[in-house]
Amino acid sequence: METIEFIETFKVMLLNRANRVLGMMEITTGGISGTVADPKVIFAAALKSTASGIILSHNHPSGSLRPSQADINLTRKLKSAGELLDIAVLDHMILTSESYFSFADEGVI
Rank of each mutant, 00 (worst) to 15 (best):
G63R: 06
L95P: 01
T96L: 06
L15Y: 02
V36H: 10
L90E: 08
S64F: 04
G107F: 10
E83G: 12
L90G: 00
S80T: 11
I94K: 05
E98Y: 10
N59H: 09
T96R: 09
H58S: 08
A81S: 11
D71N: 14
M25Y: 11
M25L: 10
N19S: 10
G34M: 08
I87G: 11
E83K: 15
V36S: 11
H58C: 11
K77A: 11
F43Y: 13
T28P: 07
L15A: 02
G34P: 08
I4M: 06
I54R: 03
F10R: 06
I109E: 05
R66P: 00
I72K: 05
P39N: 02
I94E: 03
I7N: 10
E2A: 13
K11S: 12
N16A: 02
F6L: 14
P67C: 07
M25P: 01
I55M: 09
N19P: 02
I72M: 14
T29S: 15
Y100C: 00
I27G: 03
D38E: 13
L14D: 02
T28E: 14
G34D: 12
H60P: 03
L14V: 01
S52C: 06
T96V: 01
F103A: 09
M24K: 10
A70S: 15
A44G: 06
V21Y: 00
N59T: 14
A37W: 02
P67F: 08
L15C: 03
L84A: 09
Q69S: 01
S102W: 06
L74K: 11
N16P: 01
L90C: 03
L95S: 00
A104I: 06
F43T: 06
I87M: 04
D38F: 09
R20I: 12
K77R: 13
R76I: 05
